[in-house]
Amino acid sequence: MSEMDTAQTGNLSSEVVQLCGFKIGGGFYAVPVLEVQEVVKPQILTTVPLAPDYIDGLINLRGQVVTAINLRKLFHITGNAPEEFMNIIVRNEDSLYSLVVDEIMDVMDVEVKTFEDTPDALDKEIKKYIKGVYKLEGKLLVLLSLEKLLNIEV
């Protein structure tokens, strides 16, 4: 019963979501912060022969095998990848994945009302993996759907 109470009060105030933002190429992207387990620096990679090209490989995260997905390659973002990159570790069902991105931004508090459904103008390679966008001052923050991202049928 107490759960319902908080949910209702949440609805009353102007709602804010916490997102974990990151950059790939020139774009800004985000996933809900609660879905992120941690962020780690580049790790030793074991390539998976014959896997799709956006699979960077496997990393050992404290004894757990994590599949690294290179979002730059998945989104077909051209241009040179920076030397430094980051792994955002997320969990989906029983597997751990690492989203390989260029740069991590801070945890952002974003007002829900700035949310919009997917605009048509977005690149279709990216569009199939997103939930929508947040229109922030001067920039567009693309909210990724882990569900869609991690269930890509190749």
Partner: peptide, 18 residues
């Protein structure tokens, strides 16, 4: 260790180990 679902289609591998 099982491979993530993403790599399941790769029947060549039975899993991974550390």
């Amino acid at each position: 260790k099982p491979l993530s679902r993403k790599l399941k289609c790769q029947n060549v591998y039975a899993g991974a180990t550390i």
